[in-house]
């Protein structure tokens, strides 16, 4: 059973990751923290894009909604960080479903353009401080530290463990998705929507659900992102971020858990490490996207058809 071998390797790697703070420096811990958060967002993008096959190029919106919900609730209303997470998840999921509801009937490319539109409108709402709660172009500062059973988690190590736990939960959920009717229905819709509906699949329901789940998970990552940086600003949730998430899924491998994780490393972590390249960074980045696609059109680590 290949599946369980992969899963066991995954579990070992995850536990090994949990021990990294014992040996690594603070800067590495914070890079791994950021990796964990973006990996969750990338996995959540994959739910919509790679698994349900809907061209979502505005996923940073839901990540941003989660982050801003936490920032606003914590800074303005003093709600403890971890209490904001379920609210962030629910609000992001609702935003995702409401935006998706009129759009899911659209053919791929139209949906793609509509989601770009959502992302731009979201950015403008943040920058123009609609409702006076987003803090405008500067965003919101001074987000507190989470506490668990009365213990404040203020160290890099503590935050890392929190982020790593969410990644673990996301990985378990994705793994379960692969073995459930829900995961199969997403694939049926992706491969042939008409055939799926003639077998009784309510396409609209499941597509909106895919957006809700993907957005909700991104919202949870948003909470931890706001906590990790102690600040949120519009620039972290712009169209370019959505493009990067989109590219992670396609470059890594659609519906492939190791592929998406590897994609996250390449698209988010490597640029962090190679800051020395400075202004050449994005030139190389763009070139790399072309080269990877030409050499591996299915992605670096495509999903394999595993015999059951």
């Amino acid at each position: 059973m290949k599946l369980s071998v992969n899963r066991n390797i995954g579990a070992v790697v995850w536990i090994a990751g949990l021990l990294v703070p014992l040996v690594a420096s603070n800067s590495w811990i914070s890079i791994l923290s950021i990796f964990a958060i973006y990996a969750v967002v990338a996995l959540s993008t994959d739910v919509v894009l790679g698994r349900a096959g809907m061209y979502d190029m505005g996923h940073a919106v839901y990540f941003g909604v989660g982050a801003y919900v936490t920032a606003i609730l914590n800074v303005q209303y003093g709600v403890p960080i971890l209490w904001t997470m379920p609210i962030a998840v629910v609000v992001a999921a609702i935003v995702g479903m409401v935006l998706a509801a009129p759009m899911v009937k659209l053919r791929g490319d139209y949906l793609l353009v509509a989601t770009i539109g959502f992302n731009e409108i979201f950015r403008m709402i943040l920058i123009n401080d609609v409702g006076g709660v987003t803090g405008g172009p500067d965003g919101i500062f001074g987000i507190g530290v989470p506490s668990v059973f009365g213990y404040s988690i203020s160290s890099q190590e503590g935050l890392f463990v929190l982020n790593w736990l969410l990644l673990g939960i996301a990985l378990v959920l994705m793994n379960n998705l692969d073995k459930s009717r829900l995961g199969r229905v997403f694939r049926y819709l992706k491969e042939d929507e008409l055939a799926a509906t003639t077998l009784g699949v309510n396409a609209r329901y499941y597509k909106i659900l895919a957006f809700g789940l993907g957005a909700g998970l991104a919202g949870a990552a948003g909470t931890l992102f706001a906590t990790q940086l102690a600040t949120v600003s519009p620039s972290a949730f712009v169209f370019m971020e959505s493009v990067t998430l989109f590219a992670i899924v396609i470059v890594g491998g659609q519906a492939s858990i190791p592929g998406v994780l590897l994609g996250t490393v390449l698209m988010f972590v490597v640029p962090q490490v190679f800051r020395d390249l400075a202004e050449y960074r994005y030139l190389v980045f763009g070139l790399a996207m072309i080269v990877v696609m030409v050499l591996r059109p299915q992605g670096i680590w495509p999903r394999r058809n595993r015999p059951e």
């Binding site: 379960n176 998705l177 073995k179 459930s180 009717r181 829900l182 995961g183 199969r184 229905v185 694939r187 049926y188 491969e191 042939d192 055939a195 799926a196 077998l199 009784g200 699949v201 659900l209 058809n305 015999p307 059951e308």
Partner: peptide
């Protein structure tokens, strides 16, 4: 459904005969 196994294809027919909710999955 391309790229899916014969069994996975046939499981699609079971969609309406399946009780599990999405959260149970």
């Amino acid at each position: 459904f391309s790229g899916m196994s014969v069994l996975e294809n046939v499981l699609a027919g079971k969609h309406l005969r399946t009780r599990q909710t999405w959260w149970a999955g």
